[in-house]
């Protein structure tokens, strides 16, 4: 029978490396996805995944067994991503090479997904690059992670209203950039 996350955490706490390895194997790809969306860079995302599991290992005694391990881990990943983005801001480095290697590493998309042409993909990439780190984070947390606005505010250290506005600004920027691409579809329908 497959070991549950909670059982694996319990064994990892007792020093069972194989149990922690199981958690890494089970969750690393999902954590990569959120890290990539937050950082927009594959190498950064890999670093965030690594840092997330290191922090999880250090903090594993603080994990409450009634909680969901995946949610707990995602929260750590979000914080690691934020730390990385803030560190990048401190070093005045600009987000330049965001979603730049999609074609090189992506597998074939699932059949039922909307498949974007290379040109559209580039435009979505360019639109995402226009978001500030805060806007990007707030948008990813709301749109992809489904995090409530209050939680986003806490995560970013801003008021609820400010979090709402940040999400709104992100969506508006995306809409301004991408709306011309969807209008022809509207006309045809």
């Amino acid at each position: 029978m497959e070991m549950t996350d909670v059982a694996a955490v319990s064994r990892a706490r007792d020093g069972d490396a194989d149990a922690f390895r199981l958690l890494v194997e089970r969750h690393s790809r999902a954590i990569f996805r959120v890290a990539w969306r937050m950082t927009g860079n594959e190498h950064d995302a890999d670093d965030v995944v690594q840092e997330t599991f290191l922090r999880a290992y250090r903090q594993i005694d603080g994990f409450e067994e009634r909680a969901n391990f995946s949610t707990w881990l995602h929260r750590i990943a979000v914080n690691c991503s934020l730390d990385l983005l803030r560190s990048r801001q401190r070093h005045e480095r600009q987000y330049t090479n965001g979603l730049d290697s999609i074609d090189a590493t992506s597998d074939a998309p699932e059949p039922d997904r909307v498949v974007l042409s290379a040109e559209l993909q580039q435009q979505v990439t360019a639109a995402m690059k226009l978001l500030s780190d805060n806007e990007r984070t707030a948008f990813v947390l709301r749109h992809f992670e489904g995090m409530p606005v209050e939680e986003i505010g806490k995560t970013l250290g801003i008021q609820v209203n400010a979090a709402k506005h940040t999400i709104f600004r992100a969506v508006r920027k995306l809409r301004d950039s991408l709306e011309p691409l969807v209008r022809p579809t509207q006309c045809n329908t």
Binding site: F32, L99, S101, V114, T125, M128, L174, L178, V182, Q186
Partner: peptide
């Protein structure tokens, strides 16, 4: 509808697969 189409484009952007 337009807003949702825009966001669907964002959803469709592929995450590099590991």
């Amino acid at each position: 509808t337009t807003l949702r189409q825009v966001l669907a484009l964002v959803d469709a952007a592929e995450v590099p697969v590991r």
